[in-house]
Design a protein around this nucleic acid. Structure first.
Lengths: 164, 164
DNA sequence: CAAAACTATATGAAAAATCATATTGTTTGC
DNA sequence: GCAAACAATATGATTTTTCATATAGTTTTG
């Protein structure tokens, strides 16, 4: 007996085909997010931004004048982290911080022309990349992906408890 | 004119309803992964594990004796990070490292009884949590979520180029 | 209007993650 | 069977991220 692949893990493999992990929703979500983002995140870095910086830029290009806390939620980063990212982006001249006249605690963040220019370059790239991804999924179940994700997000927004 | 909400960002909000970000696939994926995982990851931490440790445990409970590189792929972590996580988990007695007799470069990782016991506790928790999530989606588009994610992953595996 | 409770942001210290590269072991081509 | 190329893991230095908490500003209550 030449012992040819008895115990499931002889050579390289992305994962065990039939195990728990490969069919586990939280794994599928994290893996899909990772893999799908990798390509575009490379473009982001080529443009001289880190991923959270790109996210801030994109959020601001949607909603200029957002506050730090809002941006943290939208960019999926922690507040203290956002504070620092904003500070760095301000130093680079991509945005400016201005305290809200109506409430001095709030810091509102606005894109500069440079920031807006960068966003105007990256957002279309993001759209094209997204279109390419979606193109890959034509005909498959993948057509339901965005609606399904929105449905999940909608279901989870507004359920802080219910879980033991 | 009482100026009542002219510029889109008056108060708290999860995101601008109609902007680019809130309909962008990579955002939806990352946000869904984050939000959906948050609940369960809290349970993981209660069990005394960090998220990547839980992932390693789950992978090993599927495929005992996996190598570091394999685990890195499956647990969505970098190799050097995995090396350190494995070292720490070994110190805690959750697993052991053994070099592969067939190829001395490879380190195969095996759960100890303690590790297996912890996995036997957490994996069912994960399954229950997943079931609860999926239950929330009944009737909606959410039913397609797992197939759609698998379809995306399948489409992306084996396309290193194609992107400019 | 002062004290208490709360909210938004900032910051120091610590932990986690990454990057480049070293180390160790294996395969290949000559 | 030795040198070159390759592969898997480890490690030092650095950067990123988190955590706890400080600071500053606002609202509420009596």
């Amino acid at each position: 007996m030449t012992q040819q692949k008895t115990d499931a893990t002889s050579d390289k493999d992305t994962g065990p085909e039939g195990g728990f992990v490969s069919d586990y929703l939280l794994y599928l979500l994290a893996a899909a997010s990772d893999v799908a983002s990798a390509q575009f995140h490379a473009q982001v870095r080529k443009a001289g931004l880190r991923v959270p910086e790109w996210r801030v830029l994109a959020c601001l290009s949607d909603t200029d004048g957002a506050m730090i806390t809002q941006l943290a939620r939208q960019a999926l980063a922690e507040q203290s982290r956002l504070t620092r990212i904003i500070a760095q982006m301000e130093e680079r001249g991509l945005l400016i911080r201005r305290s809200d006249p109506a409430d001095g605690r709030r810091v509102r963040v606005y894109l500069t022309d440079a920031g807006r220019a960068l966003a105007a370059e990256l957002v279309p790239q993001a759209r094209r990349h997204e279109a390419a991804l979606i193109e890959m999924l034509k005909g498959n179940e993948g057509a339901h992906l965005k609606p399904a994700l929105k449905s999940l997000l909608a279901a989870l927004d507004g359920s802080a408890d219910t879980q033991g």
